[in-house]
Simulated scan of single mutants.
Amino acid sequence: MKRKKRLVIFNLVLSSFLFVFRIILLIVTIQYFTNNRVGVVHSLEVPPRIFEQFTIQIFPLLLYLLLSIAMAINERRKRQSSDISGISHLVYKGSPDVEDYLNVRKITGLSEKSEKGAKLGLKNTVCAISIYHDYNLIGMGRIIGDKGCFYQIVDVAVDPNYQGQGFGKLIMNELTTYLDENAPNGAYVSLIADEPADKLYEKYGFKYTYPASHGMYKLSQRSEEV
């Protein structure tokens, strides 16, 4: 979270500096050519050398041009980072921050976890994908397991404001690609499917265990140490 805030502040400071510097250069350039036109700069008695004239007249324009290009590149980079249609600019491979993780679980209706549990769980992730938009976590998914015989896909969630835009498929594509490339032959991959997400998981080869077997769970009731 702190890293993302620092990036926001850096972009604001850089944009402000470039804007102010650009205005100053524009004013200086206008003043120079205005003075040059009325004969203030050039002396009739001592003509400036060609190199000096080139440096004085052209350098401000070149500097102004380079600054304009830098500002354009910076603006383009910011637009790309916030454009939800540019999927490649949204993908952040790795576990999300603890605060973001807990928040997305809450707003998507998943069971809430303790901060201590989240820190331990995220640390022991096998594979994770997080999707950010405007520095906010909008989707995530993780794989946990022993990296040999058993894997489980968990925490597949997308912010309600971004659902229906293909982010769920993007998450599953990344996770299943990792399994296809890394899971040993015969490894058991499981997940808990809520409706209607179960229809999405079917497209990736997952099958219902019912009626041959039933999924079961138990929540830890141990109180957190103070």
Rank of each mutant, 00 (worst) to 15 (best):
R77K: 14
G39D: 10
L120N: 14
D155A: 05
L170F: 06
M216C: 01
L26I: 11
T209M: 10
I144S: 07
K5E: 14
S223D: 13
D159H: 15
Q80L: 14
A183C: 07
Q163E: 11
R3H: 10
P60Q: 12
G164C: 04
I107Q: 13
G39P: 01
G168N: 05
N124W: 02
G139F: 00
R49A: 13
M172Q: 03
Y64W: 14
I107G: 10
D134A: 09
F10I: 10
G186Q: 11
A128R: 06
L12P: 00
Y101H: 13
Y217C: 00
N124V: 02
P160E: 09
F33A: 05
D146E: 08
H42L: 12
I84S: 09
H42A: 14
E225M: 06
H89L: 00
A157L: 02
Y92T: 09
A193C: 07
G205D: 02
V28P: 07
E115N: 12
G168V: 02
G166S: 05
L191Y: 02
T108N: 10
K207S: 07
G168M: 05
G168K: 03
I138W: 03
L62V: 15
I9K: 12
V41W: 05
V158A: 00
H42N: 14
R37H: 12
G164E: 04
Y208Q: 06
K218T: 02
N35D: 15
L170Q: 08
Q165Y: 10
D83N: 15
G86R: 15
Y135P: 03
Q53T: 12
A128L: 01
E195G: 01
V46E: 15
K78F: 09
L12Y: 13
A183H: 05
D159E: 08
N185W: 00
A72V: 12
G121N: 02
S111M: 10
A187V: 04
L12T: 11
A72I: 14
L122Y: 01
A128W: 04
L200E: 00
Y162K: 03
A70K: 03
S130I: 04
L170E: 02
L102G: 06
G139H: 00
Q165N: 10
Y101F: 15
G86D: 14
G121H: 00
V20P: 04
R77M: 12
I50E: 14
R142W: 03
Q165R: 13
Y208K: 11
M172N: 06
